[in-house]
Design a protein around this nucleic acid. Structure first.
Lengths: 309, 309
DNA sequence: GTGAAAGCGCTAACAG
DNA sequence: CTGTTAGCGCTTTCAC
């Protein structure tokens, strides 16, 4: 039976046919778990994300899952809920039944991540740890492009609405805004929120207005929408009074006015991470991989010339 | 070792402590797979959806996953991509390693579904098959509530922007609009689009305006946003000139003006399905369950009194 | 309380 | 090519 299912070429055609026929008759299906225990090949991988409901992640999960599927792998999905402890628990729970992990925007300490890497192949997305395979969506170019776009429109003072302090993408975006601002001789103000939520962003609008900025680049699209609502609470209209740029481009053009945003390439990052993982499973150590995906600005309706004073 | 991890109360306190300490020292972790093979309890379930990237599903997945997690279950995620064959393959692949399935908006033939039900506990979401446990989201009440809401605001003439003709939810919503409209003595116009996309909805705005309707109920949130943009193309502002209601409430309040919408209760459906599944795993047969989730109107900023002529 | 051993369903190595 | 068997890492009886 085992051979008929896994190595049919080792058996005579007739035997194989016979076995398969009988299996079908009695409704026999090979037991995935027993096979995994015996071979150590689980044919499972796990993807762990901070928040499934954040629209940034589904395209990534979908892409990775589709490719995994085509390679005969099943995928576990873990939702850490932005909580390192939960993430850790998830990793531990999956450990005994997967051949590899894709860890997205991990909030876990580097120590813990290395702990798991020693036990199971793992590739990171949007977390930059030397020596570990990682794919990074580099918002630098896109954000930089956004600043240039604003400067060209005539803005002299801009603000960056910051995301989670420990987030790699936030660090990246903040740095890009500052760098481009310096190069173009713009005033750059930075505003922080407690959490990167719509509501938090909405509530921070007064501080935003006080900076005197005529344009805002926000940590992501969700907070950008919060900013737009918050500005409206103060009677300001986007883009007439203030221009707004989001990041991740998860809304496509589906809001009104449609949001100018920095593309995220979420799906590609998932596909890339999966292919790195599968490569590793097939060929073993592949050296220090750091795959960087550039971003671009998608210019839409929330950016315009600043209103004359 | 086995007892120390799974039945510590059967051992002396000291022995347990010893085992755990040594386990920690040598980095020992119980093997999930071996345990599953031995006990037949996999502590895994699978959720299969047509399209992870459709914003309707992530809240459902997230909710189910969270509850599963808290009950010690790992969850496999399958994406059928709306393809029955792929869905079938996914089911088969998961079969040997899960204790149960949640099958969402299944495109599979009833025969095949019953085939799997005989082999593994399974609960359906948004698919109504007699005798199988199922949870259904009924958009009727919410849509009806929306019509009442508009009538109370003073609207006399409303329009329904139709979704796919063959879609069950569209049929249901259209019927609810018509019925409530009749009861409240409103004029109801129906506008169709080729596909339920943002762009298609945007392009249909002239026809919408020509109906003379002062309020629009749209098939879903995406098309509702298209309507808002299309109206704006004609110089009309929502809700000042025209009120707009969406369906599914996938945007939360995250747009501006925030969209009045009919809740989809996506998360609750996931939670409910999971709890039915776990109940079944614990207590066995629970009879014919058909759990219907009513919807409600979530009133936000895109509906208001009609402008006086 | 604790040790020993059978067995979950499969694979892989070893004979024939 | 095909039959047989040890063993994957755990749980669960059955003795002690």
């Amino acid at each position: 039976m085992s051979r008929a299912f896994t190595n049919p070429h080792l058996l005579s055609e007739e035997t194989v046919k016979n076995v398969l026929r009988i299996a079908d008759e009695i409704g026999y299906v090979p037991n995935h778990t027993a096979r995994a225990l015996s071979t150590g090949r689980y044919a499972n991988i796990a993807i762990i994300v901070p928040d499934i409901a954040n629209p940034f992640f589904p395209p990534m999960i979908k892409a990775a899952q589709e490719d995994a599927d085509n390679s005969g792998f099943c995928v576990f999905l873990g939702n850490s809920n932005e909580d390192p402890a939960r993430e850790d628990q998830l990793l531990a729970r999956f450990l005994g039944q997967v051949e590899g992990f894709i860890l997205v925007s991990s909030r876990l300490g580097e120590q813990r991540i290395r702990h798991y890497v020693e036990r199971c192949p793992l590739v990171l997305i949007n977390r930059d740890i030397k020596g570990l395979p990682r794919v990074l969506i580099d918002s630098g170019p896109g954000v930089s492009e956004a600043v240039h776009h604003l400067a060209e429109l005539g803005h002299k003072s801009i603000a960056y609405l910051s995301g989670p302090k420990r987030s790699w993408s936030n660090t990246q975006r903040l740095a890009a805004v500052k760098k481009a601002g310096r190069e173009l001789d713009l005033k750059v103000s930075v505003i922080s929120t407690t959490t990167p939520s719509y509501q938090a962003a909405r509530e921070v609008s007064a501080r935003l207005i006080n900076t005197g900025a005529t344009a805002v680049i926000s940590f992501d699209d969700l907070t950008a929408q919060g900013v737009i609502a918050g500005l409206s609470d103060h009677g300001l209209v986007v883009p007439r009074d203030i221009s707004v740029v989001g990041c991740d481009d998860v809304l496509d053009a589906a809001t009104h006015p449609s949001l100018t945003s920095v593309s995220s390439r979420s799906a590609e990052s998932g596909r890339t991470a999966l292919s790195i993982l599968l490569d590793f499973l097939r060929k073993g150590n592949t050296g220090d991989i750091r795959f960087s995906l550039d971003t671009r600005l998608v210019s839409r309706e929330t950016t315009a010339r600043p209103r004359l004073p």
